[in-house]
Amino acid sequence: TSSHKLRLYERDDYRGLMSELTDDCACVPELFRLPEIYSLHVLEGCWVLYEMPNYRGRQYLLRPGDYRRYHDWGGADAKVGSLRRVTDL
């Protein structure tokens, strides 16, 4: 099985509160109590970021690497509604 891990930060450049995720999350704002995510670091696996909860809205593919600001993943703003692991490519 492949492993997945990413870290979410409330501010750009990996500042502020950090939360780690290793499984799908249908509602990021509810789980982490963060209305917006300004940076993230994908440590393992690929993920799909959705701008709205319950895997809706615009989708962004996140490969392992650094995303210091939301425009690094192509986002128009810092809204992160849900995240899902990519298990098949």
Results as ranks from 00 to 15, higher is better:
S2K: 12
E30Q: 12
L61P: 12
L8G: 03
R84H: 00
R7K: 05
L31S: 11
R33Y: 12
H4E: 04
R68E: 02
Y60F: 15
R33W: 06
L83M: 07
N54P: 01
Y70K: 11
E20Q: 06
E20Y: 05
H71E: 15
R15V: 07
L40H: 00
L83N: 04
D13L: 08
E36R: 10
C25S: 06
L17M: 12
Y14R: 06
L17T: 14
R11P: 04
R11E: 14
G81C: 00
T22M: 14
S2H: 09
P64W: 08
L43F: 10
L89W: 13
R33N: 13
R68P: 13
G45F: 02
R69K: 15
D88N: 15
V42S: 04
E20T: 10
S82T: 01
L61C: 10
D23P: 02
H71I: 14
G65P: 05
D66W: 08
K79L: 11
K79P: 03
V28L: 10
D88S: 10
Y67L: 05
G75P: 00
S82Q: 00
V42F: 00
L62T: 02
D24A: 04
G75V: 01
L21G: 06
Q59T: 10
A78F: 08
W73A: 11
K5S: 06
F32S: 15
H71V: 13
G45W: 01
G81S: 02
L17N: 15
D24T: 02
R84G: 04
L61D: 15
V48C: 11
A78Q: 05
A76G: 10
Y14Q: 06
H4N: 08
Q59H: 15
L43I: 15
H71P: 11
Y14H: 05
Y67S: 00
Y55E: 00
D12M: 12
E20C: 02
H41V: 08
S2A: 08
L83W: 03
M52P: 00
L40P: 03
L6V: 12
G65D: 01
E20N: 00
F32R: 08
R58V: 04
R85Q: 00
L6W: 03
A26E: 11
S39N: 00
L34A: 15
W47P: 00
H4S: 00
L8K: 04
P35H: 07
P64E: 01
Y9M: 00
A76P: 13
R69T: 14
D77M: 11
R33H: 15
F32W: 08
L31R: 12
L40E: 00
R33E: 14
D66N: 10
E36A: 11
L17Q: 14
P29E: 13
K5I: 08
G74D: 09
T22G: 13
S82P: 03
C25N: 00
K5G: 01
G16F: 08
L89I: 09
L49W: 00
L62C: 04
S3C: 12
R63D: 04
S19H: 12
S39Y: 09
D13R: 08
C46R: 07
S82D: 02
L49C: 04
Y60S: 07
W47F: 00
Q59G: 07
G75W: 01
Y50F: 10
R56F: 15
T1W: 05
S2P: 05
Y50M: 01
A26I: 06
V42T: 02
P29Q: 15
R58C: 09
E36F: 09
E10G: 08
G16I: 01
C27S: 15
T22S: 09
Y55W: 06
M18Q: 05
G81W: 02
L83R: 03
A78Y: 03
G45E: 02
D23S: 09
L43E: 08
R7A: 04
M18V: 14
P53W: 04
S2I: 13
E20W: 01
R84L: 05
